[in-house]
Design a protein around this nucleic acid. Structure first.
Lengths: 141, 141
DNA sequence: TTGGAGTCTGGACTCTACTTCAGGGTCAAG
DNA sequence: CTTGACCCTGAAGTAGAGTCCAGACTCCAA
């Protein structure tokens, strides 16, 4: 009964691409949309809210998998406690990653400062330093 | 004429997987290996060094593309200046990412602290807060 | 000589989050 | 009625950095 929009308008209102909306429907993050007589998907204000939620949660670094979980909690009126746990887990993850990147950064800065930056690469402290650096594997970034 | 090892020993010595060594050869990060009479790839200590360099540079967050550039500089005796620039660029990139992740982290922590964590998800400050947060798109992590 | 560990190949597959494509149908304005 | 903007579908492609596979071959020690 509420007013509805087409996919283009909904996508624009939520700040995502049209294809992304269809993709989210396929992936189950959005309910299967109602259709107009001509077969166009129809979106309500609630759908647009949901899209916006997805976009923002993504900006907070949640994966679509995480977001699916969050949306399920919303849909099912699940325990708030669980939302909190997901937020906490995400914060830990972020802390870990920030520490890791900071360590990498500091290492590179130190190497860079040992390099006077003239001549050829032979004996360059940065190149040679890389060999002897010890860091954890796979910074995932 | 120097002693050589098979791919398994080289991979182990460098701390990477066998398939990864072959992959690096395909991608041009390693020279095409000499072969034994039976067709086995043969690796020298220099190859192992190179593999180790790649691994470490990756741990510093350089992409394989970056690393290919670094290796080309090494192979060609290129200007040290250029190595420095790559290191600087990487540091800037890291700084940017660290700032971004920190902003996300702080946002999440703030939301989490507003949530007492009991009851259902309805009205949960974390969920509702996500809607109104303003951050840049695509944190790429 | 035989058995098992190691290696060879080309190609397909993984993951995430989309994006692009071709070849159509729908809708509203003029 | 036509034009142009919008929308539909299923399938395939993208990036990055590998990983895995089957089936065949090689190597070394017992």
């Amino acid at each position: 009964m509420s007013r509805t929009t087409t996919i283009g308008a909904a996508a624009k209102a939520a700040g995502v691409a049209i294809d992304t909306v269809r993709y989210y429907e396929r992936e189950g993050l959005l309910p299967v949309a109602n259709r107009s007589s001509g077969g166009y998907r129809l979106y309500t204000a609630a759908d647009v809210e949901r899209l916006r939620f997805i976009r923002q949660a993504k900006a907070l670094g949640f994966t679509l998998g995480d977001i699916a979980g969050l949306l399920q909690l919303q849909d099912g009126g699940g325990p708030r406690q669980q939302v909190r746990e997901m937020a906490r887990a995400r914060v830990s993850e972020l802390d870990r990653k920030i520490r890791e990147l900071t360590a990498i950064r500091d290492t590179l800065v130190a190497l860079e400062q040992q390099c006077h930056g003239s001549g050829t690469v032979a004996g360059c402290p940065i190149i040679e330093g890389v060999q002897s650096v010890s860091l954890n594997q796979s910074p995932e970034s």
